[in-house]
Simulated scan of single mutants.
Amino acid sequence: MESIAALEARGLTLIDGLQMTLLVGLVSMALAMVFGLIAAWAKLSQVRAIVFIADTYTTVIRGVPELVLILLIYYGVPTLLQNSVRQWGPAFADFRLNLDPFAAGTITLGFIYGAFAAEVFRGAVLAVPRGQIEAAVASGMNRVLLFRRILFPQLMRYALPGLGNVWMVLIKATALMSVIQLEELMRKAEIAAGATRMPFTFFLAAALLFLGITAVSILIQSRLERWANRGVRQV
Rank of each mutant, 00 (worst) to 15 (best):
M1W: 04
E2A: 09
A6D: 08
R10Q: 13
G11M: 02
G11C: 05
L12G: 12
T13D: 13
M20S: 04
L22H: 03
L23E: 01
G25A: 10
V27F: 12
A32L: 04
V34G: 06
F35S: 00
G36D: 03
L37K: 04
L37T: 09
A39R: 01
W41T: 08
A42L: 10
A42M: 13
A42N: 07
S45C: 12
Q46Y: 15
R48M: 13
F52G: 06
Y57W: 14
G63M: 12
V64N: 06
E66R: 00
V68I: 13
L69C: 07
I70Q: 02
L72D: 06
L72M: 12
L72T: 09
Y74Q: 09
Y75W: 12
P78H: 01
P78Q: 00
L80M: 15
W88H: 14
P90V: 05
P90C: 10
P90R: 11
L97I: 13
N98G: 09
L99R: 04
D100I: 07
D100A: 12
D100V: 08
L109V: 08
G110Q: 04
G110N: 06
I112A: 03
I112C: 07
Y113K: 10
Y113G: 03
G114K: 01
A115M: 08
A115V: 10
A117V: 06
A117I: 05
A118G: 08
V120E: 01
V120D: 01
F121G: 01
A124Q: 03
V125H: 03
L126F: 09
L126W: 07
L126C: 08
V128Q: 07
P129I: 07
P129D: 13
G131Q: 13
Q132G: 11
I133D: 07
I133S: 11
A138L: 05
A138I: 05
S139M: 11
G140K: 10
M141L: 15
M141A: 14
N142L: 14
L145P: 07
R149K: 15
R149S: 15
I150H: 05
F152K: 06
R157L: 10
L160W: 04
V166K: 00
M168H: 03
M168C: 02
M168N: 03
M168G: 03
V169W: 07
L170I: 02
L170H: 04
A175D: 05
A175T: 06
S178Q: 11
S178I: 02
L182T: 02
L182F: 07
A193R: 00
A193H: 01
G194H: 08
M198C: 09
M198I: 09
F202A: 06
V216T: 11
S217D: 01
I218T: 11
I218E: 05
Q221G: 03
S222W: 10
S222A: 10
E225L: 06
W227S: 06
A228C: 09
R230E: 14
V235C: 12
